[in-house]
Write a protein that binds this DNA or RNA. Sequence first.
DNA 1: TCTGGGGTCCTAGGACCC
DNA 2: TCTGGGGTCCTAGGACCC
Length: 414
Amino acid sequence: MNDPAPRLIAHLDMDAFYASVELLRYPELRGLPLVIGGGDASRPVMRADGTRSFARLRTYHGRGVVTTSTYEARAFGVFSAMGMMKAARLAPDAVLLPCDFDEYRRCSRLFKAAVRALTPVIEDRGIDEIYIDLGDVPAARLDGGRAIGLALKQAVREATGLSCSIGIAPNKLLAKLCSEFDKPDGLTQLTQAEVAQRVWPLPARRINGIGPKASEKLASLGLHTIGDVATADPEMLVERFGASYGKWLHEAAHGIDSRPVVTFREPKSISRETTFERDLHAVRDRAALGRIFTDLCEQLANDLKRKGYAGRTIGIKLRFDDFRIVTRDLTLPGHTSDARTIRRAAGECLKRVDLARRLRLLGVRAGTLVRSVEPIPPVAESIGNFVASEPSASYDRQRARSLPLFDVAEGSTR
DNA sequence: TCTGGGGTCCTAGGACCC
DNA sequence: TCTGGGGTCCTAGGACCC
């Protein structure tokens, strides 16, 4: 009746990743308030004397948000997800750089490859963080993973010149939580036995999965810290938050989490969306909207083909000028990665939306994906390129309700 | 001049089938 | 004819994460 050995999971999080990558390229910016974001911000210009000229935040005009800010910029109150125009009022002299995702992805591949060489069982959690299963690393058992953690940090630094913070714990929830304990450049180990002492005093919001809504609701119940949630009546949590989330809240607050480290996941959906420079009206800006719509569908089709997928559920997403979001989707008889087919299906979805208000954002999504190694050959001219042709009652209903099919502000799709 | 883009998961109701 | 229960698919919205 021996308990199985506790798991050993590491969470590795790159420190202020985008900003740190930029500082590698532009070391003269170290120590200055630096804000990264707003897609269309201008890149630095080389002067005649060989020094670089950087844009200042005050020159920004647009609808972007701050993606990352350095600690020097945070001192002005500029944080991630803040509107750039607001940030410009708070810190007009901060240096502004546009996001360079190609470069961040390059650095991301480098650090992940360096980690994988030491500890192959890793779960990708986006561009700047990963989980690592240390269960099969024999040496990790001796010191709870400390030596391997130090080796990982060294390997990441050698591969990229960047620092990271690592948390090591018996599960993903606690590893993620404690990777933040000693940022930047930290290495933190946390055991189950230390949860009450080191985790319970923290705000509930620090748990990955408790967002702004849930933490506000918890606060309204007088539950502010993780300890408050842990000692709350589990039945009350279920009553207030539902069976699934209520149970999870109780377990999470006790540091219980049995999710495995997942090394590969098939994508569930692929999408493209864009926020317009100014709000557009379905009638008055019909031509511009039609072009953008078609572009999005073509980009989505290219993404699908490039990644080797085809989707069967095509959906749209609209954000109105009042920030209300509406989605519509349509399941097709077969899978497709064809731009015109996507455009037609998305056009059908668009017909089901009241377009009286002006639009701020338009998006197109493909779901119910299958791998399609081969490019999909054309099949039936009337509906487009489908892999399969199973009859679909819902599609027929849709079609019957809203003929003609190809109508809504259709731009040229070539 | 507030508020990006790309995802996942959950809930819930209705249709439809057995 | 009435009642009902389970299961799956489709659709819409919302919370949350990086």
